[in-house]
Amino acid sequence: AVCQVIGMYDYTAQNDDELAFNKGQIINVLNKEDPDWWKGEVNGQVGLFPSNYVKLTT
């Protein structure tokens, strides 16, 4: 993983390639090539999510 982030809001996947997560959930970021849509993993599920829905862990 590149880094870990925390969901600031609940996110519901809109497409099959997206990653759903809940507020407060830890997401392992796998790829930040696109500044707006990062690739991440939660509980074995991998997908894209909007980078503005998360904050970096300290």
Score class of each variant (00 low, 15 high):
residue 31 N to D: 15
residue 14 Q to E: 12
residue 11 Y to E: 02
residue 7 G to L: 05
residue 49 F to T: 01
residue 20 A to M: 06
residue 49 F to S: 02
residue 27 I to R: 02
residue 3 C to K: 06
residue 41 E to F: 00
residue 10 D to S: 12
residue 7 G to I: 03
residue 36 D to K: 14
residue 32 K to M: 13
residue 41 E to T: 08
residue 9 Y to T: 15
residue 5 V to Q: 05
residue 43 N to Y: 04
residue 5 V to W: 06
residue 11 Y to F: 10
residue 19 L to S: 02
residue 34 D to V: 04
residue 43 N to Q: 08
residue 43 N to C: 06
residue 52 N to T: 13
residue 43 N to K: 08
residue 13 A to Y: 06
residue 50 P to K: 06
residue 44 G to F: 02
residue 40 G to Y: 04
residue 12 T to Q: 09
residue 31 N to T: 11
residue 41 E to M: 05
residue 54 V to N: 03
residue 19 L to M: 04
residue 40 G to V: 01
residue 45 Q to Y: 08
residue 18 E to D: 10
residue 58 T to R: 14
residue 41 E to N: 01
residue 32 K to S: 11
residue 15 N to V: 05
residue 3 C to G: 09
residue 38 W to Y: 03
residue 31 N to V: 09
residue 13 A to K: 09
residue 4 Q to G: 05
residue 42 V to D: 05
residue 42 V to E: 00
residue 30 L to T: 07
residue 13 A to R: 08
residue 34 D to C: 06
residue 38 W to L: 04
residue 47 G to D: 02
residue 26 I to D: 02
residue 48 L to E: 03
residue 47 G to W: 02
residue 6 I to M: 12
residue 22 N to D: 15
residue 15 N to S: 14
residue 46 V to T: 09
residue 56 L to C: 15
residue 13 A to T: 09
residue 56 L to Q: 12
residue 24 G to F: 04
residue 37 W to E: 04
residue 4 Q to E: 05
residue 35 P to F: 06
residue 18 E to P: 01
residue 18 E to N: 00
residue 50 P to W: 04
residue 19 L to G: 04
residue 22 N to E: 15
residue 49 F to I: 11
residue 17 D to N: 15
residue 21 F to D: 05
residue 29 V to I: 05
residue 57 T to C: 12
residue 47 G to R: 03
residue 21 F to Q: 00
residue 26 I to Q: 09
residue 31 N to F: 00
residue 28 N to P: 00
residue 28 N to E: 11
residue 22 N to Y: 08
residue 12 T to N: 14
residue 12 T to I: 05
residue 40 G to A: 03
residue 51 S to L: 01
residue 2 V to I: 14
residue 19 L to W: 02
residue 23 K to G: 04
residue 45 Q to L: 10
residue 50 P to Q: 00
residue 49 F to G: 02
residue 42 V to Y: 14
residue 50 P to E: 02
residue 36 D to Y: 14
residue 17 D to I: 08
residue 23 K to T: 14
residue 10 D to H: 10
residue 10 D to T: 14
residue 29 V to M: 01
residue 28 N to W: 10
residue 52 N to R: 14
residue 8 M to Q: 15
residue 8 M to G: 07
residue 33 E to D: 13
residue 48 L to Y: 13
residue 52 N to I: 08
residue 28 N to S: 15
residue 24 G to P: 02
residue 14 Q to D: 10
residue 15 N to F: 06
residue 29 V to P: 01
residue 27 I to W: 01
residue 58 T to N: 10
residue 8 M to P: 01
residue 16 D to I: 12
residue 15 N to E: 11
residue 40 G to D: 04
residue 3 C to I: 11
residue 45 Q to N: 15
residue 9 Y to Q: 15
residue 42 V to S: 13
residue 32 K to T: 12
residue 17 D to W: 12
residue 16 D to V: 12
residue 47 G to N: 05
residue 11 Y to L: 02
residue 50 P to Y: 00
